[in-house]
Design a protein around this nucleic acid. Structure first.
Lengths: 341, 341
DNA sequence: CGTTAGCACTCAATTACGACGAGTGCTAAA
DNA sequence: TTTAGCACTCGTCGTAATTGAGTGCTAACG
């Protein structure tokens, strides 16, 4: 329901505003090459666009800035993904050239690279174990009454906890139990572990092992312990370069929120896969009501494993960021599957 | 070489300034209970203290603020460690009441608690493997040509990397090698691992295993890979509450530096153990020339394992922070040794 | 002789005010 | 339908004037 001219004008305004962070007036639009109408005409259209809620005016005698609805329209209909710049391409290449030693390292490093390329903040939610399967489970004694339990998933992810072993349980029993668990649980997805544990293993275990309930409870708790996903942040200080956050209080409320893992995790909920853009108040937390969050899920072997996101002001370079994120997340997926052959 | 009265005045000025963040004048000192002289007398002393370099004046008609040398004197001679507040005591108690599952978790959580108690930024350098000994080493196959290598130290710390296995090396050879390594290396401190590997193991290994050099090189690299210490930050946004950093640029340079792990690691070098205070320009990086860093090393079993630090403005509550840090670091050490019996 | 009251002086911070100018909405002409 | 013209709005910027906290110095006091 927008005329071609209106779309061009809206596009021009948002483009300008993204660059300058200042309200853009009819005159400056008219002087750009792409919309060759007089300021007056443009003013009329701008008034219409404002009535539709796509633009707003900070005060009477200022230019227009895009509203959240305006950005939404821009992202949904107007944005054209540009090519990836020279410098960025080089950074991506050198990123993939690096030697990867572990899983989280890749993701964390990807976040760093992204924040450097975009000058925004990047947020990565670490792998969720829910969908992955157990590969190997092991308990390594440390002292008489403590041990390290290690869990390896089929994606190469490693979790570990130190556990203390109740008085009177022998290492031998422990080992037997662990062996049995490995036999029975290898390849079982984590969300099924609990039921398998009770249905298949408990009975068999009781034959070999004294006080098996106690051991089982300990290990079950170790395996199943709900853990909130790891959150990696990178480039949080980039927020401070944005003129909209030159007010320290606003900056503080954003950075403060980013430090609270559970809140950040909330932001990433409702993720349908692919690339998603949440603009301003569309976000789950009011501290970032003046920010936009662009997220992409990364996956391996068909399992959605985690999410990578870029947080910037609503006035962020959507085209560039979406392009980069799309490119990078696909490449990471590819890298990981190649890595695991 | 300071008279008793001068010390009292200096102490009063720094106390006041820490609270208010504003230059303190002779009048306000005189009105405090503890120094009962007239403003004029105090002014004279202040002029002397300034001549000695312990105070400075932002401009002619302002009060005095402590210089770095002033803070240094305060920390070295004047500060009296206060009791730990009620609220803080409660937080510490509930901290120790929590269930600890792993090593890094304790340290990281301690950092969070510290930053909440102090309203400053806390920085923790994770355990350094250099001093610890190998407890167990293991390789778990993941796919045909990749595996996860896991290293457990005697402190219960776990490291892991994904390695790719060269074409033509059998899992059997791998296992033999790993077993031999466990036999020979258990209990060996990491800094000796390399030499032991070459002097004792290489020869013996060559008897059992084909292409042993290749495998050994791979594992050696895995074990020895230099890793920069993990850095945990907590409460970085607290920096923004300090009036001295209400200027976004200053805040950005600090937060930016904190994001660069190698720079942060540098800050912690030269650590004699115990509690150390670095004030303003005494610090290794100019971004924090207006900050003070108070550090404490934590250790286990006599080995220095890492460092925990609090970063705040030079105008920070030295008494409180030093007290807390001292208390907490001692308790953590105790906790860890009890934990490992 | 150390201490203190008195006083002139300094200077950052705050407030007040006018000029400026970017941008608008409306009207009327092309 | 588009555009030129014009009066009007309102935030920003620069300049003064005002204020007040704090100082250093001098002289008097006990």
């Amino acid at each position: 329901m927008l005329s071609e001219r209106q779309r061009m004008i809206l596009n021009a305004i948002i483009d300008d505003y993204i660059r300058s962070a200042e309200p853009v007036g009819s005159r400056s639009i008219s002087k750009r090459g792409d919309v060759s109408f007089s300021p007056a005409t443009i003013r009329n259209e701008m008034a219409d666009l404002e009535e539709m809620g796509l633009l707003e005016q900070p005060h009477t005698s200022a230019g227009r800035i895009p509203s959240i609805k305006g950005y939404r329209y821009y992202v949904d209909h107007l944005v054209t993904l540009g090519e990836i710049g020279d410098r960025d391409a080089r950074m991506i290449r050198s990123f993939f050239a690096e030697k990867m030693t572990h899983w989280e390292g890749i993701i964390e490093h990807a976040a760093t690279v992204l924040s450097q390329m975009t000058n925004y903040t990047s947020i990565v939610l670490g792998p969720e174990m829910f969908n992955t399967a157990l590969k190997h489970f092991q308990v390594i004694p440390l002292t008489d009454n403590s041990a390290v339990a290690i869990i390896v998933t089929n994606t190469g992810h490693v979790e570990h906890r130190t556990i203390s072993i109740p008085e009177g349980i022998t290492m031998d029993d422990m080992t037997k139990t662990v062996n049995l668990l490995n036999d029975k649980l290898a390849g079982v997805p984590f969300y099924k572990v609990k039921s398998v544990l009770h249905s298949e293993i408990a009975k068999e275990l009781s034959r070999y092992v004294e006080r098996f309930e106690e051991i089982l409870a300990l290990l079950e708790q170790t395996i199943n312990e709900k853990q909130e996903p790891k959150v990696f942040l990178s480039g949080a200080s980039n927020m401070l370069t944005q003129p909209e956050f030159k007010d320290v209080d606003k900056a503080k409320s954003i950075l403060g929120m980013l430090e609270a893992t559970p809140l950040v995790v909330q932001l990433f909920q409702s993720n349908p896969g692919g690339i998603q853009v949440k603009i301003g108040t569309e976000n789950a937390h009011e501290a970032i009501n003046h920010c936009s969050l662009i997220t992409a899920t990364y996956s391996f072997d068909g399992q959605s494993l985690g999410t990578i996101g870029i947080l910037g002001p609503t006035r962020m370079e959507y085209a560039k960021v979406i392009g980069l994120l799309d490119y990078l997340s696909k490449d990471i997926v590819q890298l990981m599957s190649r890595w695991h052959k």
